[in-house]
Design a protein around this nucleic acid. Structure first.
Length: 559
RNA sequence: UGGCCUAUAGUAUAAUGGUAGUACAACUGAUUUUGGUUCAGUUUGUCUAGGUUCGAAUCCUGGUAGGCCAACCA
């Protein structure tokens, strides 16, 4: 019920408005959308936005969404990508109605081409790529007709069939639409419909040696599937005129194209070409490197599908250029993880604490809340003993103002345990603090505190002899600048050299031993973590999904 | 140089001719056994010049700025 209210209050984006008014006007009884990836790379956060839009539309309004692979260029497309794309969409929480491929329509598309030839609207051109480019003209000067433009229908039919049969080498001929070489829209100057490519296709094998261009495949595929609202990004705006022209001349189901501005995230790149470079040139460990903005990278990093959907909902859909602040994505994942993750204590950079008034061989089992945000989450056992680790950061001999942590003579609480007081600082020959001797207040035990002592700071800790060693990988933004693509020179010059920091040995409380790959943890005062897929029985590896908000760090930065 | 698209706070997005709102970010403060969470509050905006109108972020015109278009890529 509360969800429904929320829905109602939320305003629609411009595409939802178009759909609503089409439905209200009785133009359609239900709608069909499609998500049309080319299987030549992995899906990234920008695609997530498009996926949420297309599938979201058909969950808000009657209708369904297809998954259609736009696989008309055999030289760049691979089955590996088909599989990853399907996995990512499912993981995001969406289910398509039909799984389709543009290559399913190669026969149909060929028939469409023949029909266009018969209508005198397409011709075979023997010009070279360079000649076609020259004759195209440019923004200010009209193009020139190809010398092959006036071939007879029969001659075109014969030549096109021979192209299909493989009688001509790559690049020697094309099929072109006969529109208008002086058209203001360059895409309407007799666009190429088919090209010859003697290449193996991931699905049709060697059946074909001619392949349709995007403009002669996409719109017709939409039409064949009765797609009502074909949604794409702004760079396809000029294609819409051609899209409509072909549908009109073929007299097939009139799908309509609508464009929105692709979503851009700061401190990263989301072009497939650039992501591929990062992978191939080993700036990252692969498509699923946790620093990558790919869906698979975000998944490995510990992002949840809920948080990504929430993010896409919040950033909205519009037509203007944008560069979205990654802090919103981080906000979304923190918000979700805060609700669902179990709390654990892990020390990254240990400093030994000895509780001198605690018996040496003694140990106690304390209870720690699994999640204070969730009353049903329960508790875990935490062993406490005389020798402990805290973070180096959490002790300072000469603290700055407003430092609430352990300092000589002062008291802090150990989370879920006791209040301790710093009594003595032990240093090595170089003057480095190697151990801090404390006393504890026995009656300050968490949950049954009768000490009446108030302390400012609470620290996380682990019992030395119970500590479990693990590796922790800390990630930061991949680039040093907000928009690497708009900087001078190569975008790779702006990679953040500190985007990965590995803590080879961190010390965790024993409760982490039962972690499964689905678990989400909040390491107290450190951030949210999940098990990395490289984790094993011998070596536990955690990925930091995102830090906690840290107002103290901010304070320090201000100086 | 032509055409097309776009312009609301630092960022993103609403307001559909009638009170410029929301979220994130930033900043105060309260609460807190996480410097987390939560809560209360503050700062910041209609690109510009005209026009239409009782009234313009919204409609019109000019300008400015950004983006896209001259692949046998999608």
């Amino acid at each position: 019920m509360t969800d429904f209210r929320k829905e109602e209050e939320k305003s629609m984006n411009f595409i939802e408005e178009i759909v609503e008014s089409d439905l209200a006007a009785g133009k359609y009884k239900s709608i069909v959308t499609r998500f049309p990836p080319e299987p030549n790379g992995y899906l990234h956060i920008g695609h997530a936005s498009s996926i949420c839009l297309n599938f979201g539309l058909t969950s808000k309004f009657p209708g369904y969404t297809n998954l259609r692979f736009d696989d008309t260029n055999p030289t760049t497309e691979e089955t590996e990508y088909v599989e990853s794309i399907k996995e990512d969409i499912k993981w995001l929480g969406f289910q398509w109605k039909n799984e389709l491929f543009a290559s399913d329509y190669f026969d149909k598309l060929y028939e469409f081409a023949v029909l266009l030839i018969k209508k005198g609207l397409a011709y075979v051109d023997d010009s070279s790529s360079e000649q076609i480019a020259t004759m195209k003209g440019n923004h200010t000067t009209p193009g020139q007709n190809s010398p092959f433009r006036e071939r007879s229908v029969d001659e075109n039919l014969g030549l096109f069939e021979r192209m299909k049969k493989g009688e001509f080498p790559d690049g020697s001929r094309t099929l072109r639409a006969k529109i208008d070489m002086a058209h203001q829209n360059l895409l309407m100057r007799d666009p190429i419909l088919y090209r010859i490519k003697h290449a193996h296709h991931h699905r049709t094998g060697n059946n074909w040696c001619i392949y349709p261009m995007y403009d002669f495949a996409h719109g017709q595929s939409d039409s064949i599937e009765n797609v009502t609202h074909s949604i794409c990004t702004m760079e396809f705006v000029p294609h819409r005129e051609l899209y409509d022209w072909i549908i009109e001349k073929l007299q097939i189901f009139p799908s309509h194209q609508y464009e929105f501005a692709r979503r851009n995230l700061n401190y990263t790149v989301t072009s497939k070409r650039k992501l591929l470079q990062l992978v191939n040139e080993k700036f990252v460990s692969g498509w699923d490197d946790p620093r990558m903005p790919t869906i698979t990278g975000l998944r490995r990093r510990g992002y949840t599908p809920e948080s990504i959907r929430d993010f896409c909902e919040r950033i909205g859909i519009a037509k203007r250029d944008n560069l979205i602040d990654v802090s919103l994505l981080e906000y979304c994942i923190r918000e979700h993880l805060n609700k669902i993750s179990q709390r654990r204590m892990v020390v990254f950079d240990p400093l030994k604490i000895v509780i001198s008034n605690f018996p040496e061989m003694h140990e106690e089992i304390l209870k720690g809340e699994d999640n204070p945000e969730d009353p049903d989450a329960g508790h875990r056992d935490i062993p406490f003993s005389r020798d402990l680790y805290i973070e180096q950061d959490d002790f300072m001999e000469n603290p700055p103002k407003k430092y609430f942590r352990l300092t000589p003579g002062q008291m802090v609480r150990l989370k879920s345990a006791y209040i301790i007081k710093c009594e003595e600082v032990i240093k090595d020959d170089a003057g480095k603090v190697i151990e801090v001797r404390c006393t504890y207040i026995p009656e300050s035990r968490s949950g049954s505190d009768t000490s009446d002592i108030n302390v400012k700071g609470t620290l996380h800790w682990v019992s030395m002899k119970h500590a479990v060693k693990c590796e922790v990988r800390l990630y930061d933004r991949l680039f040093r600048v907000e928009d690497p693509s708009s900087e001078e020179g190569d975008f790779k010059d702006y990679i953040n050299p500190d985007s990965l920091q590995v803590i080879e040995t961190a010390y965790a409380e024993p409760a982490v031993l039962t972690t499964t790959f689905n678990d989400r943890y909040q390491f107290l005062r450190k951030g949210y973590f999940c098990l990395d897929r490289e984790s094993s029985e011998e070596k536990i590896v955690f990925n930091r999904t995102v830090t906690l908000k840290d107002t103290w760090a901010k304070e320090l930065k201000k100086g």
